[in-house]
Amino acid sequence: METTPANLFSRLRRDDRNAMNELFEQYYVPLCRFACSYVALSEAEELVSDVFVGVWRARKTISIESSVRAYFYASVRYACYRVISARKLNTLSLDELEDVVDVAASRGPDDDIIFKETQSFVSAVVQQLPPRCRQVFIMNRYDGLSYKEIAEIMGISEKTVENQLVKALQVIRANLLQYEKA
């Protein structure tokens, strides 16, 4: 009971460093993997660490409405957005993040690294999914996030989350069927 994320967070508010360490233990690796779909692994590790530092700093003032986990994911996604928009000089909005990453992954020497790194975590089929779709699939299937949490993190509706999952699964299934025939 003491170690549910919500409990950990209220302990964190009361300056409990162990609670911080436990949150880190639970989320650091999945968050790094999540960030890797936007930025290179070295950048991912750094910005995920920064998010933890930021949460500690702001622990008294952060208000988490629903899920602590979703809050961390959303913060990491936003941190990736900051890194990417600093790199591209033109202005980009947060909703365009996945599209920009998609364009980046298909060209540019810098982004090849990102592409390869993401690729090494998932199979080739999953890697080929459109970025938003892939992201939703990984978060639900491997990180165990609910539709509601994913919707909150990505700023999309739960219906869109479901549509993306259906799309992902249909692509993977079609790929398997083709493989069987061949």
Binding site: E25, L41, S49, V53, S120, I172
Partner: peptide
């Protein structure tokens, strides 16, 4: 069955990160 196989097909790999060092550095920051 096909959907279920597709769902269970992949096992996602874990990125190689130095969690211990990252945790130390976080505590240093704090």
């Amino acid at each position: 069955q096909q959907y279920a196989v597709a769902w269970n097909k992949d096992e996602v790999r874990i990125p190689v990160v130095n969690k211990t060092r990252a945790l130390q550095s976080l505590n240093g920051h704090i």
